[in-house]
């Protein structure tokens, strides 16, 4: 088992995933098997290989610096649970 229960709990917390006590054992097992599978790559010699950042072998196309998005706030805010004075309202977050 390559992952510990604590590691899985910590990753789940960072990703805001809720995993119940009943599920955790199975998740540790499954995630570990995925990690172990990928770990096989560690055996390959990559000394002369440039790390791949993207599967497509191309450079990023650059856009001209122009404004082309009009204000559609009213349409977008229809989808929000709550808005006030043009702001999206969310549960209170305090520093």
């Amino acid at each position: 088992m390559s992952l510990t229960k604590q590691e899985v709990e910590s990753v789940a917390r960072l990703a805001r995933l809720e995993i119940t006590e009943g599920e955790i054992g199975r998740v540790v097992e499954k995630l570990s098997s995925i990690i172990d599978f990928v770990d096989q790559l560690q055996t390959a010699n990559t000394d002369d290989v440039m790390p791949m950042a993207h599967p497509l072998d191309m450079g990023q196309r650059l856009r001209t610096d122009e404004i082309f998005e009009a204000d559609q706030r009213n349409r977008y805010q229809v989808n929000a649970p709550e808005v006030e004075a043009g702001l999206y309202l969310v549960p209170k977050v305090i520093e």
């Binding site: 006030e84 004075a85 702001l87 999206y88 309202l89 969310v90 549960p91 209170k92 520093e95």
Partner: peptide, 11 residues
Amino acid sequence: HEDFKGKTGVD
């Protein structure tokens, strides 16, 4: 963080 019905407003 001003008071919007006890919530946070996001711009």
